[in-house]
């Protein structure tokens, strides 16, 4: 609840400062170790849910996270120039995308997804952020208002609504009136 009494929830996010990334892949190592079973029992950066897109010649160092699975292949193939550096759209997109093999478990092929290192008890911050001594990854928690859910209809309402849809309101009313007299 926030001060207005409206319902809120905590949204966890990891912001990226690409200027600070040194390309050491410490985030990838921490992520893969944390998600190993048992925990920390192996390192395999191909299983990491974060990866550093690296290209020294173009000076591109962007850690991207495995976000939600995209439902369809996107049309975005735009190129952007930021600080004189040219990026394609995929450089930033965290989606586990059907058109690119990023974020798939190397053995099963199943998509991987960042879970913000949920654990019991909860961590202070996700493992990748903790490992990033360069400060390129910044953990943020923010409160977001939750939209009030529409009221749920009862069984009878649902039934009546479908009858009205099928036969029209008048007919249903007439029928109820007649039946109630019988």
């Amino acid at each position: 609840m926030n001060s207005d009494g409206k319902k809120t929830r905590i949204v966890k996010d990891i912001k990226v400062d690409t200027k600070k990334c040194a390309g050491c892949r410490g985030c990838e190592i921490a992520c893969s170790a944390f998600h190993a079973v048992p925990k920390f029992s192996s390192v395999n950066t191909a299983r990491s849910r974060i990866m550093v897109v690296m290209d020294e010649v173009r000076d591109i160092f962007v850690p991207i996270r495995a976000g939600d699975h995209a439902l369809a292949e996107c049309n975005g193939r735009n190129r952007y120039v930021i600080d004189g550096k040219e990026y394609d759209e995929c450089t930033f997109c965290p989606a586990s995308c059907p058109s690119r093999d990023a974020f798939k478990d190397p053995d099963s092929g199943f998509p991987l997804k960042c879970d913000m290192c949920e654990s019991v008890p909860p961590l202070e911050k996700p493992m990748c952020v903790d490992a990033c001594t360069f400060g390129a990854l910044i953990y943020e928690e923010r409160e977001e208002a939750v939209e009030a859910e529409p009221k749920k209809l009862g069984e009878m309402e649902v039934g009546l609504k479908s009858l009205i849809k099928k036969y029209g309101l008048k007919k249903v009313m007439d029928t109820i009136a007649r039946v109630s007299k019988e």
């Binding site: 410490g26 170790a33 190993a36 048992p38 925990k39 920390f40 029992s41 192996s42 390192v43 395999n44 191909a46 299983r47 190397p106 903790d130 490992a131 001594t133």
Partner: peptide
């Protein structure tokens, strides 16, 4: 490479490395 490098004492090693980093 997409294979695991296995570690014998996972928790102890991670704790030590995290601190060392």
């Amino acid at each position: 490479g997409t294979r695991d490098v296995y570690l014998a004492h996972p928790k102890e090693l991670w704790e030590m490395c995290s601190r060392l980093r």
